[in-house]
Design a protein around this nucleic acid. Structure first.
Lengths: 203, 203
DNA sequence: AGGCTAAACGGACCGTGGTCCGCTTTGTAT
DNA sequence: ATACAAAGCGGACCACGGTCCGTTTAGCCT
């Protein structure tokens, strides 16, 4: 046994994890494309991991190495739409994007988020706990709402208040109201606006 | 082929599904006991349906006939504690039970629910969508909160407002704040009280 | 080019949730 | 008591998520 001929990494090379090998990257996009295509053709519920692997022309093990689990894969598919939505909030046209006053933006945010959540309901459910929603997406939304609340002059524990305002727009709660109790979406939205008014402390 | 000699049910016998056969009832309690015992010994995550069936001394098919699915079984186990809690709210000692004024009761309700949700977190997660929570339990909590809000003179769309007040106490949201973001429970509770004040419209 | 290492690959394999169907038990009507 | 229909039973069976490990391949260093 001898010392390795060279240090595999002379400098810490600060920054993140090592880059991805070319075949790995190629397979990741193949898998994501296949998954997206299958999801929108059969619905997320009916998509099996074997099917995705086969459609992408790779082995099953590869699917699980790229995306930890089925939930992870679904989360990745969901991430596509989520990212577009974030772009619309950050730099799209008003009133959702910048350019309108904070109250208008908050209203647009609520409606947009409500519709988006209902639109992707199945996928969100399938993405479950490891959903982009549970990680980055919620953080994004919370940050944005906190910013808007600040603009509106709200004082208090903003992270908590933002969460309280976001909570009724999360799928489990929306599902309860819309799917199970059968409330019309308009009513739920109006209720949310009312909640926002009370939190802000305005007529 | 002849006509059936008697009508199996002369009168509609209004009121629900036919009664349960004796062996069926016996197996239901055996299964529930076995499940509860296994859950508290190994944690809900580790309990398999085969194990429950074996521990109860019945076949696997029987488990699935009584409780539609794994989630259904977990929901049934959860239902035990949930029922006790409901009794405490309806007829236990104040301030959770009747006897205190509405605001005190609301505070006690919030704290109790928060603690109970965190305590049974794993089970609730495992019970998933068909959880007693998604069905009867949420309805109970919503009704109670609606009642308290009425007592406090709140006007508006009460069903929606009640849901908004309950939403931050649901597991997914609590999980986000406590487990992922690491907020202390006290802070979450204080935030909830603040939310309640704003909804009611009082200092 | 050639050689070497670590990463990636693929598909056989396993455990578990859920279904199916032929057999048994229960309750009732004669 | 006996007969009979319906509800219940059990365990073999299937499909799908997830793991494992022997083989292949990308990237790099000489």
């Amino acid at each position: 046994m001898s010392l390795p001929p060279t240090e595999p990494q002379l400098l810490p090379l600060l920054g993140g994890p090592p880059p991805e090998r070319r075949d790995a990257a190629r397979n990741r996009v193949r898998l994501l494309d296949a998954a997206q295509e299958l999801v929108e053709r059969c619905g997320p519920r009916a998509v099996t991991m074997d099917a995705v692997a086969a459609a992408a022309g790779v082995g099953k093990g590869t699917v699980f190495r790229r995306f930890h689990s089925r939930e992870g894969l679904m989360a990745a598919v969901l991430d596509h739409s989520e990212t577009e939505w974030q772009a619309a909030v950050l730099s799209g046209p008003p009133p959702l994007g910048p350019g309108a006053d904070a109250w208008e933006r908050l209203l647009a945010f609520g409606r947009s988020r409500l519709e988006s959540t209902l639109l992707h309901a199945e996928l969100i459910r399938e993405a479950g706990h490891s959903g982009a929603r549970a990680g980055g997406a919620h953080a994004f939304a919370a940050t944005h709402v906190r910013y808007l609340l600040t603009e509106l002059g709200v004082t208090g524990d903003l992270p908590i208040l933002a969460t309280a305002l976001l909570a009724p727009l999360e799928l489990p709660i929306l599902d309860q109201q819309v799917t199970i109790e059968g409330f019309p979406v308009e009513r739920v939205y109006d209720g949310w606006v009312d909640l926002a008014r009370r939190i802000i402390g305005r007529p």
